[in-house]
Amino acid sequence: MTQLASKVLEKNRTIDARGPRFSALITTVVLVLALATNSVWVLVFQGTVFAIGAFRGPQFTPYAEIFKRLVRPRLKGDVPTEDIRPPQFAQSVGLIFALVGIIGSVSGLPLLFTVATSAALAAAFLNAAFNFCLGCEVYLLLLRLRR
């Protein structure tokens, strides 16, 4: 086995993979609402959810709670599992966009609010609709840019 594989197995913390995708669906709806109403408060709410997902873990957000209580009991079939780190990374990126959007709104830059919220919406929608893996596409590019 490769070094990476054993490293992954060591700290293998997995969750039901359908949870983050369900959360991405609610996130999409909330961010559409933020843009449609042009409301910074909706973005503050979503930013708080992103912060919980980024710092505590994606399985602890209110959306994950809805998934556990209302959605998962109704799902049948095998439970696909996923490492928590990819969705946690996505929540962190979402948090950065939400913070940028909030800063834009409070500092009188409505365009920054719209652009940042739109970027978060694009990622959430791609995740919900196409099972897009943000960490797969973005993390390596960030590393390549940085070093």
Partner: peptide, 13 residues
């Protein structure tokens, strides 16, 4: 080639 924040890496392996 794999990375930490990659869901399909495990399935691929």
């Amino acid at each position: 080639f794999s990375s930490a924040f990659c869901t399909p890496c495990r399935a691929t392996r």
